[in-house]
Amino acid sequence: MSDSELRLVSSESVTEGHPDKICDQVSDAILDALLAVDPHALTAVETVATRGLVHVVGEIKTEGYVEIPQIVRDVITGIGYTSSEVGFDGRSCGVSLSIGQQSAEIRDGVLTSYEARELGSTDPFDQQGAGDQGIMFGYATNETPEYMPAPIAMAHRLTRRLAGLRHSGELPWLRPDGKAQVTIGFDGATPRTVDTVVVSTQHDPERTNEEIREAVRRLVIDPVVAASGLDASGMKTFINPSGRFTEGGPGSDAGLTGRKIIVDTYGGAAHHGGGAFSGKDPSKVDRSAAYALRYAAKNAVAAGLADRLEIQVAYAIGKARPVGLYADSFGTGRLGSDQRIAEVLQQVFDLRPEAILERLDLRRPIYQRTAAYGHFGRDEPGFTWEALDRVDEVRAAAGL
């Protein structure tokens, strides 16, 4: 197949210094601190950052206490915003709070579910209801070793490498803000070529465009692309295509929690229910159910039920049991129908909120690390939803 016949698919990633990602990390750092002192804290925290100011808003129900302004400053300085010269200073910026108590009606609906109140269920996993209505999706594909779409997997590798070179001091003139975009050429569902790579990185003003482009091409793009094994003979690269990028972070562009949900998930290769993850405790099914569905989809693909699989689940607020589930294998399923795949998943995976929390051990301070470089496809301690520990159960339930 010629390059002109390939289907081009693009995804982007951003570094931890991107304004929106700063806000995600602040929100999740607050969540982590609360879970460390109260594993049952109910938290919905949003952060906005702009020139010289960080504002944290939301609702919290907890028996513990954390010093939120100090958490904000620690996150921002840890990212590398320690001076007005780099666009923001976490040590001197203003920090304001508008935090209230969570609605008692929402709290009661979560803690005493519809099944317990209306149906009299005594099943322990029926006692906690979903924190909201909504639809969530999970996805997996065998096109990469991490069961992630190739474009977003490569985009995350590029931004992590960019940040790593900055933190290590190998490229000390890099600054925290940056992003990458990757376009992959697909032959059907198989990635074949790296068509285009775009990298934009904030930098020290003394560096020339030529110096920046040479270093980023040699130390960031080329190693990542080579490791992919894809054909890059016709690859086009654009490094800081807008020219200079000395001003970055919240000093030049406001940031907001939850504004990079496609970066957080599958890069556009799968649906997203709309709900953001960061700042929400795991009783919120926006977060926990999306993790559970990734867990189910990944184990199902690894078990051979399909080459690609997307799962959707729907909840009603205050109700423990999902109100709907479907699976879509995009024609790659091996069980005769996608309905049969859905039946197998429902047999193996309990998607009631309390069951998810227990199985994936989600009431722990693990979330700040999820808030940059994607929530999925990372083999890291605490990312329990990435474990391939249900493959045999899935195969047995499917009769494979």
Rank of each mutant, 00 (worst) to 15 (best):
E5S: 14
R7V: 13
S10R: 00
S13Q: 07
T15G: 11
K21G: 03
C23Q: 08
S27D: 03
I30T: 10
V45L: 12
V48K: 09
A49Q: 00
A49H: 01
T62P: 06
T62D: 05
T62G: 06
Y65M: 08
I76C: 12
T77N: 09
G80C: 06
T82D: 15
E85H: 08
G94L: 13
V110N: 03
L111C: 05
L111R: 06
S113D: 09
A116G: 00
T122I: 03
D123L: 04
P124R: 00
D132T: 01
E143W: 02
Y147L: 13
P149I: 10
P149C: 10
R157T: 00
R160F: 01
R166L: 14
L174R: 09
G185Y: 01
E206G: 15
R207A: 08
E210M: 03
R218Y: 00
R218T: 15
S228I: 04
D231P: 05
K236N: 07
R244P: 02
L256P: 04
T257N: 09
D264A: 01
Y266R: 04
G268C: 11
A269C: 09
G275Y: 04
V285C: 05
A289F: 01
Y291K: 02
A297V: 02
A300D: 01
D307N: 15
A314N: 04
A314P: 01
Y315Q: 07
V323A: 08
R340Y: 02
L345S: 11
Q347P: 01
R352K: 13
E354S: 13
L362A: 04
R364L: 12
A371T: 11
A372F: 12
A372D: 09
Y373F: 15
Y373C: 08
H375S: 06
F376A: 11
R378T: 10
D379I: 07
A387C: 11
E393R: 14
